[in-house]
Nucleic acid binder design. Structure first.
Ligand SMILES: [Mn+2]
Ligand SMILES: [Mn+2]
Ligand SMILES: [Zn+2]
Ligand SMILES: [Zn+2]
Lengths: 141, 141
DNA sequence: TATTAGTTTATAATAATTATAACTATGGAA
DNA sequence: TTCCATAGTTATAATTATTATAAACTAATA
């Protein structure tokens, strides 16, 4: 709680009740929530929360570099709180977006083909570990 | 023209007038159009074309593996006709999506961290060659 | 107290995409 | 030729994520 406030302050974001809760949810959640998932979680603690606040807060967080926006799913934006750059797996079975710790060979390159590279976004499509082991368990029956 | 028909037929897609024209546009265009860009181009030749047809056709093409869907821009889907897998640069200046021919070290890996990898999607964010040289020209004034 | 800036909320507007149903072209059977 | 089935196209409406707008609230400050 105190930690979260400090994190917000360090980015010059006024630590309102709503903002603290949203950051708390982002921190807890592993698989890259969309606005609606965050909103549903918030409702449990702040029943008067508005979806606009979630949108506003997330775009503030993104501006201040506190979260990264992932355009992996075509339907809606996903939000990523983890600090270090990394890649993702989009599971075509369960729909989750999962962190994958692989290094990109080009992660330290700032120039390719004359283009200036500022950010690397990579993701894999496939079937996640959990879904695979679920498949196996099914087959053994 | 004959080529385009053959391409469609080889994928079991009936080569209607509309479909041929859409494929033709995709082939000509380098920077990964969205539905509206394709629609606007089509209007010049088929003034009665419907946007629904563009959507239907592109989703057929995608199903049959003729195009790839890019979720790089958050606003809308972009379509990629090139056959070989490759990466992209999203220029934050001009908004274009440009092919970048870099190899991915993991392109032949089918398994990472126990997850099954079926497809690799990667893109870079930055400023493209053309925008950079435009900047330089400005400065010299 | 009155004022102000910053934050949250309710509500409406926008825009990409999908769903639905009517219309059209085509090719074969009768 | 006429009828019919099918696939493809079109117009239109519905859905849904996101953004815009303005009102209400909060906390700090003169
Ligand atoms: Mn992540
Ligand atoms: Mn491409
Ligand atoms: Zn899964
Ligand atoms: Zn550019």
């Amino acid at each position: 709680m105190e930690d979260l406030i400090k994190i917000l302050q360090s980015r010059n974001i006024h630590p309102s009740h709503q903002r603290i809760k949203i950051l708390e949810i982002l921190e807890k959640n592993e698989d890259h929530m969309n606005v609606n998932m965050i909103y549903e979680e918030l409702l449990k603690e702040i029943p008067t929360i508005s979806k606009t606040t979630v949108y506003n807060t997330l775009s503030t967080f993104a501006e201040k570099g506190l979260v990264h926006c992932l355009t992996i799913t075509p339907e809606e934006m996903r939000y990523d709180y983890r600090a270090n750059p990394h890649h993702h797996l989009l599971c075509t079975r369960c729909g989750r977006i999962i962190d994958v710790d692989v290094q990109c060979r080009y992660a330290d390159t700032m120039e390719i083909d004359g283009h200036c590279i500022e950010e690397i976004q990579g993701y894999f499509k496939g079937i996640c570990r959990e879904c695979l082991s679920h498949d196996k368990a099914q087959k053994q029956k």
